[in-house]
Simulated scan of single mutants.
Amino acid sequence: MQPLKPKVRATIVCIRHGRVLLVSKDGVRWALPGGRPGKQESPEETARRELHQETALEAKALVGAFQFIGATTVHHVFTAAIAASARPKPGNEIKCLQWLSHEKLGEVETSTTTRQIVSQFFHAHTP
């Protein structure tokens, strides 16, 4: 019997004024934008597509930040540079979104993986 192949996901961290962009399908549980790749789609292509589908944002630049191995999923984490004037709008299956400071992340319902990815990102990008 072959071992189970882990799921793969492109996850995007958008930061503006020290706050991270979170999306929600139900207005209760929050996550980073992202999703699973389509056939023959690279993690970067997935990240661009998912960011646009979920938030209507276009990444001016998309940089691979790190890989995060969760319980069942390998996350290819990207940071997206977006225009200062860009305003995200919920799209696709997303009901709402919000910008939240890293310090307030514990005040909303998220997965452990979301909290760990955001913490790792801020730890790596804070002098």
Rank of each mutant, 00 (worst) to 15 (best):
K5D: 05
K7H: 06
V8N: 06
V8L: 13
R9T: 07
T11Y: 07
I12W: 08
I12T: 15
V13G: 04
C14L: 15
H17C: 14
H17N: 15
G18V: 09
R19G: 04
R19Q: 09
V20N: 00
V23C: 05
G27M: 09
V28M: 11
W30T: 04
L32C: 10
P33C: 13
G35N: 13
R36T: 08
R36K: 14
G38F: 09
G38A: 13
K39D: 02
E41P: 00
E44Y: 01
E44T: 15
T46V: 01
T46Y: 01
A47V: 14
R49N: 05
R49P: 07
L51D: 07
H52W: 12
T55C: 04
A56N: 11
E58Q: 14
A59F: 07
K60Y: 02
L62F: 05
V63T: 08
V63L: 03
V63S: 06
G64T: 05
A65T: 03
A65P: 04
F66R: 05
I69E: 10
I69F: 08
G70S: 14
T73W: 06
T73K: 07
V74P: 00
H75R: 02
H76T: 07
A80F: 02
A81C: 10
A81G: 10
A84K: 15
A84S: 15
S85Y: 09
A86K: 11
R87N: 10
P88D: 01
K89W: 09
P90E: 07
N92P: 00
I94F: 00
K95E: 11
L97M: 14
W99P: 01
W99E: 01
W99D: 08
L100S: 02
S101E: 12
H102A: 13
E107P: 03
E109I: 05
T110Q: 03
S111I: 01
T112R: 02
T112K: 04
T112A: 13
Q116A: 04
I117R: 02
V118R: 05
V118A: 03
Q120I: 12
F121I: 01
A124E: 09
P127L: 13
